[in-house]
Amino acid sequence: MIMTNQRSAVALISGGLDSMLAAKLMMQQNIHVEGINFFTGFCVEGHTHAIRKKDKQKTKRNNALWVAETLGIKLHIIDVVDEYKDVVINPKHGYGSNMNPCLDCKGFMVGKAQQWATENNFDFIITGEVIGQRPMSQRKDTMPVIARESGAFDRLVRPLCGRHLPATLPEQQGWIDRNLLKGFSGRSRKPQMALAAEMGFVDYAQPAGGCCFLTDKTYSDRLVDLWQARNQRNYELDDVMLLKVGRHLRPQPNFKMIVGREEGENNFLEGYRRQFIHMRTLNCSGPLVLLDGELTPSDIELAAQITARFSQGKSLDNVDVEVISKDGVGRILHVRPLSENQIPQDWYL
């Protein structure tokens, strides 16, 4: 609850350490802080753990919720899947080393937070950005770009590196003390880890390679392949989810296969049976396989041989593969599994 005359800020909470520390620094200055977290569809958080059976044994938590609970603040999770498409498809500032539009993404999220702050009468916005931490979005020259393009301007406070930046409105107005902001910079995590220890935070998330699938090369290559195959740069949430799951192979330009690698993935792919022609092996255990594209009879035969290759019957002379249409009509093909060297490496996406 906001006390009389207490200033309020909305903090972008990713679930990682930096945003947690930034929010805590403001709370220590008697600012009422609430968190905001955006679901773009590309978040690494949760999905792969929820899908893969081997990961289900691990205790699972949503790190943004964990951060909010640890800090004792509210967290508002916002679905931005549809609005975010324009960021991914038409990034004004281009992509990073993969399909990651980091600068546009940060501008978009701060802009959404600014909109939320205005609607809910909050005074300013907090992020956990650190100068020099990320090559695209967290540089001294790009930080003013984010503040300007988001519309947040001088209501955007970066408590972890604020000492290196011009004074913001909350500093000028005396809502917060600039001397208590930090002057972190660079890629080293040591200052953040020391501050976390000082604040008593342990067990915080330490994601390797960031929290977004678009920074991953394999995932980005699959997205580009999807756009090329469809001849248009667009996607739905189901596409984004399916790119995270299974082996992806494109044996011919006109079709792609998504091959479940284990029981959890097979169960997940089962949910898409009515949207794709799919395959499964009958006389031995094997993957569930979705076929995306327009397939000729010879393509179906080839796909069945590949499906057999990834089954327990890969060394048999013949495997029975059931091909099931979108309306559930099945037929059985008796095929010889392809050998490993009959599947060229460039079929794998």
Partner: peptide, 16 residues
């Protein structure tokens, strides 16, 4: 159906 809801929804309740 997502087992993650087992921990996420109670955590969300506590926070909110």
């Amino acid at each position: 159906t997502d087992p993650g809801a087992n921990s996420d929804i109670p955590a969300w309740c506590r926070i909110m």
